[in-house]
Amino acid sequence: MKDEPVNSKTEMRCQSVQESVLARLDNESDEAVWSQIEKHLLSCEVCAGFAENSIMMNARLREELKDDKDTSALWSRIVRDLDAEASSTDSAQATVSRGKAAGGIFAAGAVAAVMLAAIFAFPFTQNDQIKITPLAVKESMNDFLTFKASGRDLDVDSNEPRELRRWLVKRLDFEVPLSSAMPAGFKLAGARLCAFLNRRSAAFMYHMDGNLASVYVMAETGLDAILKRVPRNNELTVFLSRGLTNVVWRSDGLLYVVVADFPEKEAVRFAKSIGDPFSVFPLKITSVQENQTVLAANSAAKVPKG
């Protein structure tokens, strides 16, 4: 190795070589000068070390920070977003409804003027701290928008809670609490069975004068990461997103998400009147224990109950 004295000229030369080395790594080097750079690297331990470290750092970062995730699920959500975006900008077509239940629900109209305040059992905080919309809320919103745009029928077209519960209980791996209490001004239109987040969930559809609210109920099991973004039990959190109001809370091992196409104040009142009876009349204890065992087994296999 050639011993070059350290002086400003050498340092400048080394700096220039090191810039060329980085350009070479980025496929941006000038071939004409590269042979000279190589000669320098043979004679300068500092620059050779710099080059080797740079190569290794590049390679390790590429290897370790790669993520070959299957993006097909993400693509589906993007398509749904775009569909919803397109339908929301084309109101004339977006109000078309084809389903028998949807026809009644989505008739054009204004929000009813007054909703009676229900029992305010939950503490309620506007969600300023949690700026990240939980995935459960996003998926519920996506489902709500897709259903609204599709005009599909509800799975069960009934305003009788017992009938809905009877239909759902055969199809879910948790027991759905269903109150007969009705938020003031709203009518229960029916229910749907939904599938997202590797689980089945129930969606109860309510409507009032052309506005719609859907209450999604799903088991909390296996949603640990998502639940870190949802406050403690029985505390309502509101997420405003994409023109929808989302109210989320947890109670007795279940996660509730209200997706509503009306303003926050009304949505919170709606959620409180829905949520409080649910928490007052929780699951049957015996069923909970039995179903929790089933859920644990199912979640490990990632296969929802058939």
């Binding site: 190589e38 331990e45 050779a48 070390g49 080059a51 470290n53 390790r60």
Partner: peptide
């Protein structure tokens, strides 16, 4: 890019082995 690389080298340099080479590293373009 230069600033980013420098910062990453400083923070992650401990993961790089001490240089023992006396040859020119393989720097042919990808």
């Amino acid at each position: 890019l230069s600033r980013g690389r420098k910062q990453l080298q400083e923070e992650l340099g401990e993961y790089l082995p001490a240089n023992k080479n006396s040859t020119v590293p393989n720097l042919r373009p990808v």
